[in-house]
Amino acid sequence: MYVGVDMVKAARWERICEKFPSRLEKMFTEEERVHCESKGKNKAYSYAALWAAREAAGKALGIGILGSGFGDAYLSWTKWGA
């Protein structure tokens, strides 16, 4: 097993949030969007973190991010966190 680091540019997600908000609906579940939007001006960082988590899950499963639909993997929150 290998260990890797996924890095995502928050500036890219700031641009997506501003210019292409409809993409967020296709890429993230409603629960994920509500969570990110609740972060106010820091929402791009939350979207970037969610994207990195999905990308890491796809790599760990050996299917990559394009090997599955965006909705096949998602995060949810409990009273203990993500």
Rank of each mutant, 00 (worst) to 15 (best):
G64N: 03
E14D: 10
K79A: 14
S46H: 13
S22M: 08
G64C: 06
S38A: 11
F70C: 09
G40R: 02
G62K: 04
R23F: 14
G58D: 04
L61G: 07
C36N: 04
N42Y: 10
R12V: 04
A57L: 04
K19T: 14
K19N: 09
K19F: 14
L75Q: 07
A10R: 09
Y45V: 08
V8S: 07
W13F: 15
S38F: 07
A53M: 13
I65G: 02
S22F: 13
N42W: 05
V8F: 03
A10N: 02
K43Y: 04
R23E: 04
Y47V: 05
K19A: 14
S68R: 15
E18N: 09
I16E: 05
E25A: 14
K19M: 12
C17H: 08
L61H: 08
E37K: 11
E30I: 12
R23Y: 15
G71S: 09
M1H: 12
K19Y: 12
A56S: 14
E14G: 00
D6L: 08
S38L: 01
W51Q: 03
A53H: 01
Y74S: 14
K41Y: 04
A44T: 03
G69Q: 08
F20G: 01
E18Y: 12
Y45Q: 07
C17T: 13
I65W: 03
F28W: 09
Y2W: 10
H35V: 03
R15H: 09
S76M: 06
V5C: 06
A10Q: 12
G67F: 06
L75C: 12
K19L: 12
E31M: 07
K26I: 09
G58P: 00
F70T: 14
D6P: 00
Y74I: 00
I16D: 01
T29R: 13
P21N: 07
S22I: 04
G69D: 14
I65Y: 12
K79S: 09
A49G: 10
G64W: 08
A73Y: 08
E30M: 04
Y47D: 00
Y2A: 14
A57Q: 06
E14L: 04
W77S: 12
G67T: 07
R23N: 10
G58V: 09
E25M: 13
W13Q: 01
C17M: 10
C17N: 05
G81Q: 04
W80P: 00
G40I: 06
A82S: 12
W80R: 08
L50M: 10
A52R: 00
M7V: 15
C36L: 03
L24H: 02
I16K: 03
K39M: 08
A60G: 08
L50C: 01
T29N: 05
M7K: 07
S76I: 09
G64H: 06
Y45M: 02
I63V: 15
K19G: 04
S68E: 06
G64D: 05
K26S: 09
D6W: 09
S46Q: 03
L75M: 11
P21V: 11
L61V: 02
E32Y: 04
L61I: 01
S68F: 10
Y47L: 06
A73D: 05
Y74M: 07
Y47W: 05
Y45C: 01
G62H: 07
G62V: 08
A82G: 09
L24P: 00
C36G: 02
R15T: 09
